[in-house]
């Protein structure tokens, strides 16, 4: 599934995007290997949708370049391999479900899998004769997914696909996606501002904040690159951290009374931050803890704004 010599599914090099002088994205560099399920996370307004529009070719970057399996987004080579579901799931409300699928077939005649598209719709209890406009949010998502998966694309880009779904439908839709990944080994980028709903799903993460990539990498590598430290704050240091701890490795630290809680980057090649000894309670952080610590550290620590996983 992961041929290391293959082109990455996505490669962004020094991407910058301006809208009427406002910088929406800057210095974005990342690579997403094929076959990964990447969570694109970040607060609202971080630039997630802009990044999606660059991946699909709906936007051209002001500076830098984006590549989809080595091709320029929007070109024929890139378009046939990419499927995108935007936040508003654009479908024609007057069309029936069957007519909507016919549009999908006409747009990608060579690769279209009608049986699969019909199965996805049918398993959701949706009649082909129903008009799109009368469907619930969950069912509309299912139709959008049937269109995207019927296209047999290799890269699936999903902008907040789960946002307006109830927990049961969310579980169902995610299961559907994961089954497609198991079947075809496709690459998926799925955005959300709620990480926990993706924690069991993604094996790669892109954290976007204020138009910059704050973190990018394999989720397991990231978990092993940081340590969460808790314990009694050291009374002899102003920040409560152990006196020998490398302050440059601190992502975020808070003290509440005598209690210290901090996230530190591990020293290269080890599983502990430098200067932290066995007096401290240390454990591997969850992905969510790593992301939250980075988001919280944002305003002051602009110096190490971009960090790639070791």
């Amino acid at each position: 599934m992961n041929d290391p010599t293959a082109e990455p599914a996505l490669r962004a090099t020094a991407i910058g995007q301006r809208f009427r002088g406002n910088r929406a994205l800057h210095d974005c560099d990342f690579e997403l290997p094929a076959g990964r399920i990447a969570a694109l996370v970040g607060p609202n307004g971080a630039g997630k949708s802009t990044l999606f529009h660059l991946m699909t070719g709906l936007l051209r970057p002001t500076t830098g370049e984006m590549r989809v399996f080595g091709a320029v987004p929007g070109t024929r080579a890139a378009r046939t391999r990419t499927a995108f579901i935007s936040q508003d799931k654009p479908l024609y409300p007057q069309f029936t479900v069957a007519e909507m699928l016919a549009v999908g077939r006409r747009l990608s005649p060579r690769h279209w899998d009608q049986a699969k598209a019909e199965r996805i719709v049918g398993e959701g209890g949706i009649s082909p004769k129903t008009r799109i406009g009368t469907l619930s949010g969950g069912k509309r998502t299912r139709v959008a997914l049937a269109l995207a998966l019927g296209k047999q694309a290799d890269l699936l880009l999903l902008d907040e696909p789960l946002a307006d779904l109830d927990p049961l439908v969310r579980h169902e839709v995610t299961g559907l996606l994961m089954a497609e990944v198991a079947d075809r080994g496709i690459t998926v980028v799925i955005s959300s501002h709620v990480l926990p709903e993706l924690e069991n799903v993604c094996d790669h993460v892109l954290l976007l904040q204020g138009g910059r990539i704050r973190l990018a990498g394999d989720t397991q590598d990231l978990r092993e690159a940081y340590t969460r430290l808790t314990g009694r704050a050291d009374p002899d240091t102003p920040d409560g951290l152990p006196p020998g701890a490398d302050r440059a490795a601190v992502v975020h630290a808070t003290t509440t009374g005598r209690h210290l809680s901090a996230l530190l980057r591990n020293a290269p090649g080890t599983s502990l931050p430098s200067g932290v000894d066995e007096h401290w309670i240390t454990r591997a952080p969850s992905l969510e803890e790593i992301l939250l610590a980075h988001l919280r550290s944002a305003p002051r620590n602009a110096a190490h704004a971009t960090e790639a996983a070791a």
Partner: peptide, 17 residues
């Protein structure tokens, strides 16, 4: 069960299975 069947029912990453 196959990885596909497990992930369809549990909504987790196939690599986990």
């Amino acid at each position: 069960p196959t990885a596909r069947a497990v992930v369809e029912a549990t909504a987790i990453n196939p690599n986990t299975v």
